[in-house]
């Protein structure tokens, strides 16, 4: 029977920062629910509170008001150590700047959460091999971050986040520091994780093409929810609109949607109006 209880829930989340004498409200009464296996993108302009929301959801920071529930457990009722231990077990985080420890190899970076938890190597060796295979870094496991490309470093960071088999994977602008093609590869990886592992993902991005990989997009504006939309539904509507004027483009959109659904997307398309559109092809990762 499929899980129905939300993995992650935010109720009336608010957060303010004091900058000198000025009080700045970053989040103001955010409510959201993330179902098991969902892929939610959080979008909004700079300063809209995207990253702060992610920090609150991951228990990295405390809200000034409201409540975050992970698997029904309220994070605000926990001490710092309890939240840290929960994060260690149930939350995977991927950052824009990878945040790999430079003195450790790929393999050591990936298994770092287990080392922190004091697990024996034989207990996690199998899991480590699997996750390195999944992200395609098995051949690079003994390299240090500085010996890898940006995309490979982000794959290592994703492997580290997936390694703990988290209840939720949080990603903060994971493609923000990567070029277009590499970014697409990383997004494909997220999609694979969702499709193959049923991984629940919350991703902050300001790139609409990145958000296209998500099931649902939460729009933030000045710390409030500006809208929530099903992007696939919107893409289908867009394809229908293009069907008469530009039938070939409408077909491409539909084909891409099918590929997305099947997890076999090899193409990223721009869904803007034809005058500004530009088709770019990327190779799906092996």
């Amino acid at each position: 029977m499929a899980e129905t209880t939300p993995v992650l829930e935010g109720r009336g989340l608010s957060k303010t920062y004091q900058v000198g004498t000025i009080t700045q409200t970053v989040l103001d009464g955010i409510d959201l629910t993330v179902s098991p296996g969902a892929f939610l993108a959080v979008m909004g302009p700079s300063g809209s509170g995207k990253s702060t929301l992610l920090h609150l959801l991951g228990g990295l920071d405390r809200p000034d008001g409201g409540e975050v529930l992970l698997d029904g457990k309220a994070l605000s009722a926990m001490s710092d150590d309890e939240r840290t231990l929960l994060r260690r077990r149930a939350v995977g985080i991927v950052y824009q700047f990878f945040n790999l420890v430079p003195v450790l190899t790929v393999e050591e970076n990936v298994c770092l959460p287990a080392v922190i938890a004091g697990e024996k190597e034989r207990a996690y060796r199998q899991r480590l091999d699997t996750v390195l295979e999944l992200v395609g870094l098995a051949a690079h496991r003994d390299k240090q971050p500085a010996q890898l490309s940006g995309g490979q470093q982000q794959r290592a960071a994703i492997a580290r986040a997936l390694f703990v088999e988290p209840r939720v994977l949080l990603a903060d602008e994971p493609t923000g520091n990567l070029d277009f093609n590499t970014g697409a590869e990383i997004l494909h990886l997220f999609s694979e994780a969702q499709r193959l592992l049923g991984q629940t993902i919350v991703m902050v991005t300001h790139d609409p093409r990145g958000a296209g990989w998500a099931d649902e997009v939460l729009l933030l504006r000045d710390g409030r929810i500006g809208g929530r939309l099903d992007l696939r539904q919107k893409l289908r509507a867009q394809a229908a609109k293009l069907d008469r004027s530009h039938p070939s483009r409408a077909k491409a959109v539909l084909r891409w949607l099918e590929q997305l659904d099947s997890g076999d997307a090899a193409t990223v398309i721009d869904v803007r109006e034809p005058a500004a559109s530009k088709r770019r092809t990327v190779k799906a990762p092996a």
């Binding site: 840290t84 950052y95 945040n99 420890v101 770092l112 959460p113 580290r160």
Partner: peptide, 16 residues
């Protein structure tokens, strides 16, 4: 700084 923050985010408690 970023290494400490990363370790904390990955679940290392302050005493670690």
């Amino acid at each position: 700084t970023r290494v400490w923050g990363t370790l904390r985010a990955l679940g290392a408690v302050p005493r670690q």
